[in-house]
Design a protein around this nucleic acid. Structure first.
Lengths: 204, 204
DNA sequence: TTGGATTTAGAACAAATGTACTAATTATTT
DNA sequence: AAATAATTAGTACATTTGTTCTAAATCCAA
């Protein structure tokens, strides 16, 4: 693996473990056994490392969304798959979510990009919910404003379940993902028709 | 106002505006027009300032919870009042929530305290939900696991609505509080009985 | 008013940080 | 093999930070 890639990998590990403001370029270099000068040959500014990692996260999410878009029919199983993949990706780049506001302040480009992203995603989610209504998965009589609020809830939960985990239980890896996947599933439950609720409980 | 109190006030303002890792004891002193030496006479360690502010937040929340406990009957109006007061307090000490993980890492005592707090609160919420069920406010047929998940949702939403606001809309003050109060109300909607749903919509 | 306590300013310090610079080493191309 | 380019280590520097120390100023009680 070339040095540049090793820097990114080491940075990701250290950031995930100790947070973005604790870890400096010197820490990353030391951990790798290279000089700080060398590191800064590959990344002139430390922020570029964070920016690059964020970009990879964004690309990863695009891939997940593309998979949902490619599905011939969007149903609850597809959504489950979507949730599970999203949580895994989130966990892989968890330092970003654990320090999202801090990073957004430090690198405004990231905040702007994220903001644009959520606006796109909001429409996509509302379209999916419409389809769920039409297909008898979601109840018919839910006000539009409640569904819009649900989208915001999904964003907040998706972005900060890791912070909640950090502040409370501190479940690790797949255990955390499994637990919060359950939370996400429960989140949808009261919006489902009786038939869909049955289906969900049979599945477990 | 004595110097110590002015330090706390200035620190709160600066932390809220610029985050906890950007603002140093020197910044706070400079903003007040006092020397850094003087500041450190009142607070030997900068972390003590953060700790003190966190304690005040915790006391504030206890007061809000006490008000709920004192109510003769817990109904949706009481809950609305609870949400609105909580959001206001959260906004007042927003730097804590905007940098919760960071602060929890920096001052472990805060994380421990918060952790203990949520465990107490979880039971309180579940008791309230039980009462809502008995009183025909919540639907009867909601599985216990779904209600437990709802409590976690409430915690995550309560702790991170401000971070979501920071990363996206950046609504200010009362506008942010009003918007996210609406999100919280919608969050409960699908759990309510038809009668309670009607009541909620009449109220608006 | 005098003497002790409290409060304050300002200087000083060690550690850490981001990054630039230089020179050496290594890799690649011709 | 020679020339050129890429990579690397190591040094250096200005800035910032938390904190300590000293001495002056201010306050307060007797």
């Amino acid at each position: 693996m070339e040095t540049k890639e090793r820097i990114l990998k080491t940075a990701l590990d250290l950031y995930n473990e100790q947070g973005v403001h604790t870890i400096t370029s010197r820490h990353i270099a030391a951990e790798m056994g290279i000089s700080a000068g060398n590191l800064h040959y590959h990344f002139k500014h430390t922020d570029e490392i964070i920016q690059t990692l964020y970009n990879r996260l964004a690309v990863g999410f695009d891939a997940i969304m593309a998979a949902v878009g490619a599905a011939s029919d969007i149903n609850l199983d597809i959504m489950k798959e979507f949730v599970s993949r999203s949580l895994e990706l989130t966990y892989k780049y968890r330092f970003i979510f654990l320090h999202f506001v801090e990073i957004g302040l430090r690198i405004p480009a990231i905040r702007k990009d994220y903001h644009a992203l959520t606006q796109r995603r909001e429409k996509e989610f509302l379209a999916i919910f419409d389809k769920f209504k039409a297909d008898g998965i979601f109840k018919q009589d839910i006000p539009a404003s409640v569904l819009e609020a649900l989208v915001t809830q999904i964003f907040i939960m998706g972005d900060f379940w890791l912070s909640n985990n950090e502040l409370t239980g501190k479940l690790k890896g797949s255990k955390a993902i499994a637990y919060y996947s359950g939370i996400f599933a429960s989140m949808f439950y009261p919006y489902l028709t009786k038939a869909a609720q049955q289906l969900m409980y049979d599945a477990n």
